[in-house]
């Protein structure tokens, strides 16, 4: 990652839960509110050293993906006109992952307070379950039906009016 800023803190080091280190450009890191907060705090203290931010909840393979997202969005941060291109990229980005990765990515986006990525993940998950039946949703997400038949019937009858 190229360093462009002349400010005291141009890069930070992020540590994943499995102890891998990632050197991240400040602008890229700022896409995550969690990292941005850490950087701001350190800058207030006047630290000139490169700081290390440990993320105990994010594995390195997921962190790689979050940072890939942040990097792309940092490139477009000052440019609203490229919205369309970025949207397309976002869509392609998520399409690559299996549901397990998507799950971890969503959790990581939430933990790292990367709002746009979190919204993107939620919308993507919602879009992919939209047209499925309850059975199909359980199947693709590997979820056990833990309702009793009575509870299931109650939910079904809760709002008979929603017929479309």
């Amino acid at each position: 990652m190229a360093s462009s800023s002349s400010s005291s803190l141009s890069r930070v080091v992020v540590k994943s839960s499995d102890n891998n280190l990632f050197v991240v450009n400040k602008k890229v890191a700022s896409q995550s509110q969690l990292l941005k907060q850490c950087i701001d705090n350190m800058e207030e203290k006047g630290t000139n050293d490169v700081i290390l931010i440990p993320l105990s909840n994010v594995t390195s393979n997921i962190l790689t993906l979050v940072l890939e997202y942040c990097e792309k969005h940092a490139d477009f941060a000052d440019d609203d006109n490229n919205n369309q291109e970025l949207k397309q990229w976002d869509h392609e980005f998520l399409k690559k992952f299996d549901y397990a990765t998507l799950n971890s990515l969503t959790m990581a986006a939430d933990y790292m307070v990367t709002k746009s990525l979190l919204n993107l993940c939620c919308q993507f998950i919602a879009d992919s379950i939209k047209d499925l039946t309850v059975q199909q949703i359980r199947q693709i997400f590997d979820i056990k039906n833990d309702f009793t038949p009575q509870e299931e019937a109650d939910i079904k009858n809760e709002n008979a009016w929603a017929f479309r």
């Binding site: 379950i129 997400f141 929603a162 017929f163």
Partner: peptide, 15 residues
Amino acid sequence: CLDSRPQIQQFRAVC
């Protein structure tokens, strides 16, 4: 993020 009420009802019925 779901669009309509039936979709949310489906969602609630998963587990």
